[in-house]
């Protein structure tokens, strides 16, 4: 995964990722139009397929609304790298097949940098600066969800096992 960075700070909550005034629909395309609207008005207009969100601590805190990762995924974002994630956002993202990477060195990545993330090793290369960082490896269960494309395929697989 290689893409341009959209940089955010600490405690980006689900109310700013997708404000509740747009929760009267769950259509991914509609939600993507308002993604990040209350924190960065340009995001939804300018984000391109394959871009990457980089943030600091506790990304996705607050409500359980799956509309938050759905809107991010539908906006074209390939993955999110942050120092830490709120737990419901974390599970929602993997459940819908949006990979997340926990990396404590996101301070060294700036808005507009081009980075490359190796999904299996968690290695992050900042192409713009030449620096390399290591994200925590994705736990095996999450890796399985990512490989399958989300919880939907996992459910189908599980129904055959049990």
């Amino acid at each position: 995964m290689k893409g341009k960075v959209w940089k955010f700070k600490n405690n980006v909550d689900t109310d700013v990722i997708i404000p509740a005034r747009y929760l009267n629909t769950s259509d991914p395309g509609e939600l993507a139009k308002h993604c990040m609207e209350d924190i960065n008005l340009n995001f939804a207009k300018k984000v391109k397929k394959g871009d990457i969100i980089v943030a600091e601590e506790n990304f996705g805190c607050g409500s359980s609304r799956e509309h938050a990762p759905i809107s991010i995924k539908a906006s074209g974002i390939a993955c999110i790298v942050a120092k830490s994630f709120a737990r419901i956002f974390y599970r929602n993202s993997f459940n819908i097949g949006l990979p997340l990477f926990e990396c404590k060195e996101t301070d060294k990545i700036k808005e507009g940098d081009i980075i490359e993330v190796n999904i299996s090793t968690g290695e992050i290369k900042n192409i713009s600066t030449g620096e390399t960082f290591q994200a925590l490896p994705i736990p095996p269960f999450m890796q399985e969800l990512v490989n399958l494309g989300g919880l939907e395929s996992y459910a189908k697989k599980l129904s055959k096992e049990i």
Partner: peptide
Amino acid sequence: TGVGSTDIGFAFATGMLWFK
């Protein structure tokens, strides 16, 4: 514990859920 919608759909179907 609070989870997402997909989780709940999964629990509706299987009666189970993954937890850390």
